[in-house]
């Protein structure tokens, strides 16, 4: 990074530290914080979409669709989320490869041979000839889908509860005006449900933030991976030898998460205040009274 970093062995003190903290691998470590934020930014809207779909399905009049929605929303209740994080990516990967195997491969060799999962070279995902970044993007996509499925189920729970909480009279009035079910949903139900859904959703956001280190388990080179990699003891054959510093790296990661939580809390508090103003709820009433004083 800096010009004086060309020979690290002669450096001392702060100069050494400034060179050490700007090595190529450290820059990757800093970039991996971006990966976490990217995951949050992509997952949150998709999970919300899944949740909306799940909640609407659980309210559906078509029985099979309703059962599907109910199963989806209740699947996270009894089973630890980490089981889904381990299961969904592998299951999805094998499912896609199996489909491609059926379509692209000739010969009907079974996919499962003993303890191996074998598909022909043309059906591999991603293809073994594809460049490195395709593999990375593919792994990240699977991770995003796994997160979205799990958090979509949580969000479906929240949104279903919020939809139930919208006063029944509001919907009936809309129906009395001759609105179709679709119009009732779009004009009355969805605009009103947010104030009921917000506490649950903000809680969910906090849980999502705290679930991001599990990316490490999915084989993504995220902050936990780099903290372990960089913190491990480096012998003198490395340019920057140091003893086991993993504790300090994890402290830095911890500080990052505490900061994220702290900022989120501030932002969400404001959002709650914003959304409950003018609402006929306890919070809205309290705001009105405080303003009147």
């Amino acid at each position: 990074m800096f010009t004086y970093c060309s020979d690290p062995s002669v450096l001392e003190g702060l100069a050494w530290l400034s060179c050490y903290l700007t090595t190529g691998t450290h820059l990757l470590f800093y970039a991996s914080f971006g990966i976490v934020l990217l995951l949050l930014a992509i997952t949150a809207p998709i999970a919300l979409l899944f949740g909306y779909g799940g909640a609407m399905a659980s309210r559906s009049r078509v029985a099979p669709l309703r059962w599907l929605g109910r199963i989806y929303t209740s699947m996270v209740r009894g089973v630890p989320d980490i089981v889904f994080f381990l299961f969904v990516p592998i299951a999805l990967d094998q499912g896609l490869e199996w489909l491609r195997h059926q379509a692209l491969c000739d010969g009907d060799a079974p996919v499962r041979q003993g303890n191996d999962f074998v598909v022909c070279a043309a059906a591999k995902l991603p293809l073994s000839t594809s460049p490195e970044w395709v593999h990375d993007v593919y792994a990240m996509t699977l991770a995003v889908i796994a997160f979205s499925v799990v958090f979509g189920a949580f969000a479906a729970n929240v949104l279903y509860g919020a939809m139930q909480a919208v006063p029944r009279a509001q919907l009936e009035t809309a129906e009395a005006y001759g609105m179709t079910p679709r119009q009732v949903t779009r004009r009355i139900l969805v605009p009103q449900m947010w104030t009921y859904a917000l506490p649950g959703l903000s809680n969910l956001w906090m849980i999502l933030i705290k679930a991001t280190p599990l990316l490490f388990l999915l084989g993504i080179e995220d902050i936990v991976y780099w903290a372990r990699e960089l913190g491990g003891a480096k012998t003198s054959s490395f340019a920057y030898p140091h003893p086991d510093w993993r504790l300090y790296y994890f402290l830095a990661v911890l500080a990052f998460y505490l900061l994220m939580t702290w900022i989120s809390e501030r932002v969400l508090d404001r959002l709650v205040a914003r959304l409950s103003s003018g609402q006929a709820t306890l919070a809205g009433e309290a705001q009105r009274k405080a303003g009147a004083l």
Partner: peptide
Amino acid sequence: RGSPLFIQFFLAYEA
């Protein structure tokens, strides 16, 4: 409450 349990495990082990 503000940090992931996963990180807490790592940190505690290293400490």
